[in-house]
Write a protein that binds this DNA or RNA. Structure first.
Length: 512
RNA sequence: GGCGGCGUAGCUCAGUGGUAGAGCAGGGGAAUCAUAAUCCCUUGGUCGGAGGUUCAAAUCCUUCCGCCGCUACCA
């Protein structure tokens, strides 16, 4: 029976350019998607862009264009970044697409028909000049002592008609959800915060606006457009073809994993399940929040001018070195720091020295001493069995790590085996066996090739391009690269191509 | 203010009741197949402070200090 696996990234808001944080979440989701494909699951991997709202309207104006053209441009840039990072998405949804608009309106109607939406009034501090609401804490004292907007514009307390979602009625059911499904929300820190947030009590949620037009019209009341979360969250269903229950993709619902940045964990863990409960739709299995990246120890911000475009890093260090670094550096779920030094260190020590050099020394021994022919699998010594045993448990080991979104731990598990391989080759010393026991040398090299094949197979989701090259050099055919294929040893006698370095050491250009 | 998290070797972190761990960095040695990469050994911590529970605490409780997060409509 084929298992289905549906994983999503957030849809990224198009009021600003893509940066390393967006890439991070997408790469993590990509690893999950690729991993499940290699495990034989049927995968649907969704990403996209969120394009409505006042901020996009304003950003477009500032750029002297209209909202749609602006959204087109930025959305294309996000898509370009996803492609540049080798994100294997199956669909890229945009909230301005007709399929999303009709689907979201259908979801709204369903929720409204079930009595969870009512018309009320949204109150707040409104600055006429900015055409914008501000939160109480955003206001600053003006020259005359009266509170004004951060832009300096005068504000007044106004009421605007708005549709509300009866979020307050879902507190108990949400707490029950977290209680009964400890894995629904991760990691632990985020989970605790959300639970205590919900325990504090929930207010109804304003889900429409009349103060701007760039949004999805509320069904039956064109004066309103949907506000933020109802529109955005619905993408996870609209991409599947909701409300058409016969749409082929609907079989992927409920989603197995919504991967999100920690800033929007609450919306995914509180609003989204509540909307779905109200609509009578099954809930996603898991929401997991990843942390933030600081840059050289500093918060990434436009004002500091240290916003990192991942495509620049790729140009300098190579795609897989960047993918690897982001997932390897710090436990997935926590915050992490991106520094040049750490990136170079990871690349040189773990990719070039540990793994790249292991492959290179093994394959050049095979090339030189076996004529590049893969030796047969023969009798194994205790050491051989021990090493291969470590390789054989990797699929199950990683499966459970991926299950709990422990991407860093998964990599650490693989690296333990890589280090064991380096110890093995030193202890066996096939270069010495060449003179004393050439047959045993072949056995040793064969064990190493098998170990490398297992390692490269498991690392494909993390570093698809490099591992493709490594598996090519190991003469593993395209059909032999799934996890299941690892149970069948490669037939001996194959001709291996001439080995070529896969992970070059990074050497800093000469300082002036 | 309320709730929560963290504070363990120079650095990044693992370890949740039973004689302190990993990787990197530092020191010594071996090997020379390999991208001068690798392997072996090793230095190093009164586990933030104090008090308590226990035969036994980094691990449970109390308190103090320091850092951080959340505290709703902000993408």
């Amino acid at each position: 029976m084929t298992r289905r696996f549906y994983v999503t990234t957030p849809i990224y808001y198009v009021n600003g350019a893509p940066h390393i944080g967006h890439a991070y979440t997408s790469i993590a989701a990509d690893v999950m998607a690729r991993f499940h494909r290699l495990a034989g699951d049927e995968v649907f991997f969704l990403t996209g862009t969120d394009e409505h709202g006042q901020k996009v309207e304003q950003a477009a104006q500032a750029n002297g264009t209209d909202a749609k053209s602006f959204a087109d441009k930025v959305s294309a840039d996000f898509r370009n970044m996803a492609d540049a990072m080798n994100i294997s998405y199956d669909d890229f949804i945009r909230t301005t697409e007709p399929r999303h608009i009709t689907s979201t309106q259908a979801l709204w109607k369903k929720v409204a028909d079930n009595g969870a939406i009512y018309l009320g009034a949204y109150e707040g501090w409104y600055a006429l000049r900015d055409e914008c609401f501000y939160g109480e804490d955003e206001l600053v004292p003006g020259p005359d002592g009266k509170k004004v907007a951060p832009t300096g514009a005068p504000v007044e307390w106004v009421k605007e008609p708005s549709y509300f979602f009866k979020l307050s009625e879902y507190q108990d059911r949400l707490l029950e959800l977290y209680e009964n499904n400890p894995d629904f929300l991760g990691p632990h820190g985020a989970r605790n915060e959300i639970v205590s947030f919900v325990k504090q009590g929930l207010r109804d949620l304003s889900i429409s606006r009349t103060s701007f037009k760039w949004g999805i019209p509320v069904p039956g009341d064109d004066k309103h457009v949907m506000y933020v979360w109802f529109d955005a969250l619905a993408n996870y269903l609209s991409a599947l073809g909701y409300p058409d229950t016969n749409a082929p993709r609907m079989a992927f619902w409920p989603a197995n994993l919504h991967l999100v940045g920690k800033d929007i964990a609450r919306f995914h863990a509180v609003y989204w399940p509540a909307f779905l409960m109200a609509a009578g739709i099954e809930l996603p299995r898991k929401v997991f929040a990843n942390g933030w990246w600081t840059i050289e120890g500093q918060k990434m911000s436009k004002s500091l001018g240290n916003v990192v475009d991942p495509r620049d890093l790729v140009k300098e260090f190579g795609l897989d070195a960047v993918r690897f670094f982001l997932l390897r550096e710090v436990p997935f779920g926590g915050d992490s720091d991106l520094s040049r030094k750490a990136l170079i260190m990871r690349n040189n020590v773990e990719l070039a020295n540990d793994l790249g050099n292991l492959a290179q020394r093994t394959l050049s021994l095979v090339a030189r001493n076996c004529g590049g022919i893969l030796p047969e699998r023969r009798t194994l010594t205790e050491e051989d069995t021990h090493l291969l045993g470590q390789v054989m448990v990797l699929p199950d080991l990683l499966k459970s790590q991926i299950e709990r979104c422990a991407l860093t731990d998964a990599l650490e598990d693989v690296w333990k085996v890589i280090r064991a391989c380096n110890a093995y080759i030193d202890h066996q010393a096939p270069w010495a066996l060449r003179k004393t026991d050439p047959e045993r040398m072949k056995d040793v090299l064969r064990v190493l090739v098998d170990a490398l094949r297992g390692i490269a197979t498991m690392l494909q989701p993390f570093m698809p391009q490099s591992m493709e090259r490594m598996l090519d050099q190991l003469a593993v055919t395209a059909e032999e690269r799934s996890f299941a294929a690892l149970e069948t040893p490669l037939p001996g006698g194959r001709q291996l191509p001439a080995p070529q370095g896969i992970f070059p050491r990074y050497v800093e250009p000469e300082q002036a």
